[in-house]
Amino acid sequence: MSPEAAAAGASRVVMSAADIDRALTRIAHEILEANKGSKDLILLGIPRRGFPLAQRLAAKLAAADPSIKADAIVGQLDVTMFRDDLARQPTRAPERTRLPAAGIDDKVVVLVDDVLFSGRTIRAALDALVDLGRPRAVRLAVLADRGHRELPIRADHVGKNLPTASAEKVRVRLNETDAASSSWSGADEVVIEAGL
């Protein structure tokens, strides 16, 4: 446990690396089922942790359906400039937006993020998508849904529903993004930390 987490009080692991992997496997199959196959699928991860999750999902899709090339269907969608809290938060540096070579017009875009909370990030993502093209359909896959929505948005594919208090913090730590941080425990995990 990191010193900050210890100071903040209780912190509990709600998903282990194996849980995360199983949830992603299930979501991958749900995506194929809902789409009735792999036709026109594009996965767009929302930085930072949505992107590695999208890559992992694409690898699982490719494993389930050999006609899919994992690299060709994954992209990253930065939503920083579309947020509604730019003037209230410390400045955020925008991240790269990378689309698959085929573009997103008339495709089925699955947005991938780690935690669904207020829904404001997803609203920003929907606005960002409009400027990039016109997908046939947009779906949402998240690793954890912690409730407390502030907008009429819901996820199509959820790894795990986490009942939380609004003061609690849900931390997702992934090998790709967090291995260098001081709170890295050695494996992927989802942790709920008590609020201050």
Binding site: D78, M81, F82, A93, R96, D131, L132
Partner: peptide, 23 residues
Amino acid sequence: IRILDTAEEMAAVGEREVKKLPA
């Protein structure tokens, strides 16, 4: 470096069809 990195992302906007951000 923060300004230059941010400019790098802004440059990508100039190559898009909708060259506008609502920031």
